[in-house]
């Protein structure tokens, strides 16, 4: 006698048991996860571009090596995440196509240009920092492969955040020009980093169902607050000015109150008016198209080899 699959699914969710690839799951759960994991994977991959932009110009060999290995990690995260999504029945080729046609999204933060070396510090510190806050909570997400991927990714991301912050320390405690560079990068990346947590809970399209299914474990606003709180002492230690002039400790809430986010600007960038929206996708398409003959060569070579093998076997 078997249990009603939907009831069984909800029982597992409530009991904090992981859902595994072969388990029954509602279509909408599957779709929601594919959307989220895919978006996460694309973000890792597109995120290689703004950081990759500074590899050749890194101002010390040590920084160059650290940045190279960081960007490599991001590519690795993209790979795990593509594999996680594949367990839900979508292929990597389909996901790449969805990215390139705009059907799938990536984090809008990567539509902002990296204009200075300081931006590499700001991305590691703030962008990876915001990503970790989100990902730590996703280590408890209900889908097994995604949760396990997050555990591994979080370990590397926390190294990334430390390297970004350490880079900022070197700038903020360096020459006047370096300090100015650090402040400028902080000013430009602080607000977009806050927006990485997504819209207010009341306006988030996917939030309610994702919370019920325990795909998401904490709300956008709660995660954002956590990030705001943790960033205040970090900015103080750097000796930089906080970009939010309305920031104030609220004794009663035990949190910082903060100024309003400029959501018009957020949607403006998401909707195509960022500096790099077109550039990021064009870059991806170009690399992919230029690699087509390489991928074809592998296929042809492997076919020749296996034809030879079967001739020998015959």
């Amino acid at each position: 006698m078997s249990m009603d699959p939907e009831k069984n699914f909800m029982r597992k969710i409530e009991a904090e048991e992981k859902i595994e690839p072969k388990d029954w799951m509602p279509d909408a759960y599957r779709k929601n996860l594919i959307r989220q994991i895919q978006q996460h994977a694309h973000s890792e991959v597109i995120g290689m571009q703004p950081e990759g932009n500074w590899i050749t110009r890194a101002p010390s060999l040590r920084r160059k090596a650290v940045l190279l290995s960081k960007v490599q990690d991001e590519a690795g995260h993209g790979l795990y995440l593509y594999s996680s999504a594949e367990t839900l029945g979508i292929s990597r080729a389909e996901m790449i196509e969805a990215l390139q046609t705009g059907a799938a999204k990536y984090a809008s933060i990567f539509n902002y240009p990296t204009q200075t070396w300081g931006d590499i510090g700001a991305i590691g510190w703030l962008v990876d920092g915001a990503a970790i806050v989100n990902q730590v909570s996703l280590q408890r997400t209900s889908y097994g492969p995604y949760a396990r991927g997050m555990i591994r990714i979080c370990k590397e991301e926390s190294f990334h955040q430390r390297q970004g912050y350490e880079l900022m320390i070197a700038l903020a405690h360096g020459s006047a020009e370096q300090k100015k560079m650090a402040q400028d990068s902080l000013n430009r990346f602080y607000w977009p980093a806050l927006m990485m947590f997504g819209p207010h809970d009341s306006e988030s399209a996917h939030s309610a169902k994702s919370m019920e299914w325990k795909i998401k474990r904490e709300t956008n606003d709660d995660l954002r607050q956590k990030f705001i709180d943790q960033t205040v002492p970090q900015i103080e230690y750097l000796g930089l000015e906080h970009p939010d002039k309305e920031l104030k400790w609220n004794e009663e809430r035990g949190h910082y109150d903060h100024g309003d986010l400029d959501w018009d600007e957020f949607y403006n960038v998401i909707n195509g008016n960022g500096h790099c929206n077109r550039q990021r996708i064009e870059h991806h398409v170009k690399a992919h198209e230029e690699g087509a003959w390489v991928r074809d060569a592998i296929t042809a070579y492997n076919e020749k080899k296996s034809a030879k093998k079967s001739r020998h076997a015959a």
Partner: peptide, 24 residues
């Protein structure tokens, strides 16, 4: 290192990044 994000597929971005890292 100029290949990073320009490789024919993601695995190759990682592998070339590795080689670049060895040289640096």
């Amino acid at each position: 290192s100029e290949w990073v994000s320009n490789g024919p597929f993601l695995e190759e971005d990682i592998a070339l990044g590795n080689v670049a890292l060895d040289y640096i």
